[in-house]
């Protein structure tokens, strides 16, 4: 790689970042004109309004005999019409999980395993300003 090209690779991102940041801070950020507003038919998520809060559900998943359920997928469903992101959330080696990025409201939390075949479900409420806990015991 030539010295000039190397310099180019190093400097270009910095220059762009600096200029972009400069543009923003100079007050030149445009405001969408009324004619450019998306049509009213566009559906927005219920949590897509002003100042939404995003919280998490955390918990411990165990089998009925007390063993930890590790590396199992934890699914959540919004019971108040929340749009749930399709993240993969699995329990860790300690049987614990953390489901991030959830809007406040009621949720059903489900786990199902195939070996052994067992499942569990519980409900919890994510508060507007905190984290909810939902431990699950799997039964066959």
């Amino acid at each position: 790689m030539s010295a000039a090209r190397h310099l180019n690779r190093v400097l270009a991102p910095l220059a762009v970042g600096a200029v972009l940041a400069g543009c923003a801070s100079s007050g030149s950020t445009p405001v969408a004109s009324p004619t450019a507003t998306p049509p009213a038919a566009v559906t927005q998520a219920p949590d897509g309004t002003s100042a939404p809060t995003r919280a998490a559900i955390t918990g411990l998943v165990t089998f009925a005999d007390g063993r930890l359920a590790t590396n199992v997928m934890v699914s959540v469903t919004g019971l108040d019409g929340q749009a749930v992101p399709e993240l993969a959330v699995l329990t860790g080696p300690d049987g614990r999980y953390s489901w991030p990025g959830l809007a406040p409201g009621r949720y059903a939390v489900r786990v199902a395993t195939t070996e052994p075949r067992a499942n569990g479900v519980t409900q919890t409420i994510v508060p507007a300003d905190g984290t909810a806990t939902a431990d699950i015991t799997l039964r066959s």
């Binding site: 949590d47 939404p52 992101p85 399709e86 993240l87 991030p100 990025g101 809007a103």
Partner: peptide, 13 residues
């Protein structure tokens, strides 16, 4: 990717 895969979303995200 999805935005929620890089940022949990919203002003408190």
């Amino acid at each position: 990717t999805a935005g929620h895969c890089v940022h949990t979303g919203g002003s408190a995200g």
